[in-house]
Every structure is written in C-alpha cells, then in structure tokens.
Nucleic acid binder design. Sequence first.
DNA 1: ACCTGAACACCGTTCAAGT
DNA 2: ACCTGAACACCGTTCAAGT
Lengths: 236, 236
Amino acid sequence: MTAIENDTDTVRIPLNRDRVLRAAVSIADSDGIGAVTMRRVGQELGVEAMSLYNHVANKDDLLDGMVEAIVDEVLRDVATREPPGTPDDWKRVARVRILTAREVMLAHPWAPAVIETRTEMTPELVAYFDGLLGILLAGGMSFDLGHHAMHALGSRALGFSQELFVPDDTQEPSGPELREMAAAFPNLAGMLQAVSHDGDEPVLGWCDDQTEFTFGLDLILDGLDRLRRSSEDRQA
Amino acid sequence: MTAIENDTDTVRIPLNRDRVLRAAVSIADSDGIGAVTMRRVGQELGVEAMSLYNHVANKDDLLDGMVEAIVDEVLRDVATREPPGTPDDWKRVARVRILTAREVMLAHPWAPAVIETRTEMTPELVAYFDGLLGILLAGGMSFDLGHHAMHALGSRALGFSQELFVPDDTQEPSGPELREMAAAFPNLAGMLQAVSHDGDEPVLGWCDDQTEFTFGLDLILDGLDRLRRSSEDRQA
DNA sequence: ACCTGAACACCGTTCAAGT
DNA sequence: ACCTGAACACCGTTCAAGT
C-alpha cells in the first residue's frame, strides 16, 4: 500500500520550473503567444494558475524563461553543427551559425517578438553572442570592429529581422484600384509589377523571406569582411 | 442665451479621431505605451472610455492610428529636409531621409515597438517606403535590387534597429565576478575591456547607439552601392 | 449622432487557508 | 514546501439607455 503510494507519487511528475517553461513554449508553438496565460499554462499542467508562482516569479519571468529555453535550443543545434576550426573562413562559419539560429526561430515563430521585448540579457543569450563574437575575432577582426559588427547584425545575429516592408499580396488590386495606387506610389507599383513577373526563383507570396534574409546577411558579412581586410592592410 | 450656448458649444471642442490619436500619442510620449489604455485616453480628453469607440474601432485601431500619426510626422519632416534633385548622390539623400526618420523615433521611443506589432501597412507607411524606393531607383538601382535593398534595410529604413546585443553596463561587475565572467565569456569580456578603454569617441554608456546605427546603415548603403555599380558594369 | 453607466469576460496577482 | 480557492485591481469591450 505504501509502495503503491510511492508509485503514484512518481507517476505524478512533480512540477518544476523546466516543466512550466516547456508547457508555455508548447502552448506558444501551437496557439500563439497570446494563448500563453498563467491560467492556460496551469491548465496544461493539470494545476491551478497560482501554483506556477512557486516556480516562476511572475509572467515576465515566465517569458524570460521561454526565451531561455529557445536560446538553449539554438546553442545545442549550433554546437552540433559548427564547422571545426577554420578561422580564416569566418564568414561561412558565422553564416552557418546564424542560419542555424534562424531555423530554430522559424520553428518558434513567436520567439522573435518575445525576445525583442526582453530588456535584460540572459546568460544563454550572452553565451550565444560570445560564441559569435569569437568567430569574428578568430577571423581577424579587432575588438572594435567586432563590437560594431555585433550591433550592425542586430537581430540578424539571432536569425531574424523584423520585416516592416511587407506589401500584402493577398488582396490583388483590381484594375481601377491598381491604376490609383500606381499614381500615388509609382515606385512601389513599378517594382511590384517588375518583381512579381520575375518567376525564376522560389518565392513565397511575391517575395521569399529566406532569400531576403540571406541577401541582407551576406550584404552585411561582405561589408564587414571588407572592413576587416582594409584594417589589416593598414596595420601591415 | 442661445448665442452663449453656441459659444460653449465651440469652446467644448468636439471629439474626433485626430484628437483621440493625439491624446494617445501624448500619453505614450510622457508615460510610456503601457499607460495608453482606453480609460486613460478618455480621461485625458475629459470623456468616458466608451466614447472613444465612436472614433476608433478598437484598441488595435487606436494603435494603428498612433503609428499613422508618427509616420505623418516623419513624412512632414522628410519633405522639408530632402535635398533637391541629386539622383547620383543617392546614398547621401537616402541617409538624410533615414536619419530624419530616426529623429522622430527618438522623440517617440515607444513607436518602434508599436510599429513592429502592426501587421498591415498604412498608406502613410507605403508613402514613406515609396519615397525611399524612389531615391534608390533614381540612383540607378534596378527594381530587383531596389526590392532587395528595402528588405535588407528592414527597420533601419524607418530609423531604428532593435538592439538585442545590449550588455548592461549599469552593474559594474566586481573583481571576482569579472574574473568568472571572463572565464565563461572570454570574447565578450575581452571586447568589453578593450572598447570601454577606448575613450576617444562620444559614448553613452559604453556604446553609442547613434554611432552604431550609422555604422550599420553606412555598411548596408555602401554594400548596396557596390552591387548597383557592378550591375551597371555588367549591363554596359 | 454622440456620450454614459453598468456590466461582462478575461487578465496578472495577493493572500489566507489548506495538506 | 507546495498547492488551492476566493478575491482584487485592471484590462478591452458590449449593450441598453440617455441626450
């Protein structure tokens, strides 16, 4: 009888911070970040909302923890996929790391927005940035250029870039509407027409986020490499 | 008596969408976006919260309108400051436009975060982007390169870039803590030390946001100009 | 046509009470 | 030490009622 009691004790997995965070991440993945409420997370764990406060300080701490979990996932993936010691090929190494982070973000589409609202850096985030900076320094950047580089990459360092410029292609403008738009916004209208007729590359909607992300990333990496080379020339 | 009644009518300025939006912007400017609630906006206008629903559809529409107001401010400032027709100097013209937008954002620090949460483009935003694209096209970019350029600039086109990489300098680590951090994050620790000792440029904290913004902006603009030139060479 | 008061559903969070 | 139930303050929003 006491043995059975022990059994039920082990079957009912005790609540802890990690389980709370995983439940919250799972809800956000399936139903969006808006569905992550204390009551809902508690419900998912078969517990009252108030019990969560034994394991997270408050809602903000819960969100911090969710980011923590995502960045942990990034760190794990990065560790398994980082190409071994090729410091001179820093651009490729940095690119692989950043695109690995991007894949994690694409699997958790709510994460970028939450990350942007965080004010304090978690140790996990610091570890990720330290690793990326290490790649830049090993490639020959000065501390100063490495510093600028981290800021220039911004959110791209973590694999995402907020897209403000998202002309919605869902509502195809009809004849008169298109003429009206063409008159008010001639440049965008012309571009929209020219690019949408360009059907030789894979696109989602009329512009492919992945293509645009790598374009911007390579633009920055190439620019940084140019600065690195010219500063090395200056020292030589 | 009826004349006096008319007078009080004109003294009590009628509520309208524009007054509601201006009140909301003013609250956000002084007390942050968190203070912008329907009840508070109503209070600021001497009216019940429910009255606002006669002029905005809901809270989301209110936020849309606030963005609208900010972008309007950008468009006004841009119009007065845009250097007259120098298409070949597109980089300088684009730079002036973007740094003008940035000044507006610095005056309304809540705006970037709100803009990022908007899903639909307002006509004002479209007008701003159309103008910027016009500068790029006048400078000799193809529609295709102009398209990539807009995405590569991302939020920088509107004068801001979310800074994920913000090591907090407020809590100066003490001796043993610093040594511990140096062991765990050697690259960041080295950089922090090297850059913080570099006192020959104006810094806020240990890195100047304005300096980092223009560094990243110029990096992208230079890279785009290089691509523009090489595509022109290819065509010639 | 515009504004009001009361009410509703839903948050995060507290607190005293249970075990 | 951990969990619960009731309650509180504060949201956005509805609805019927006022003028």
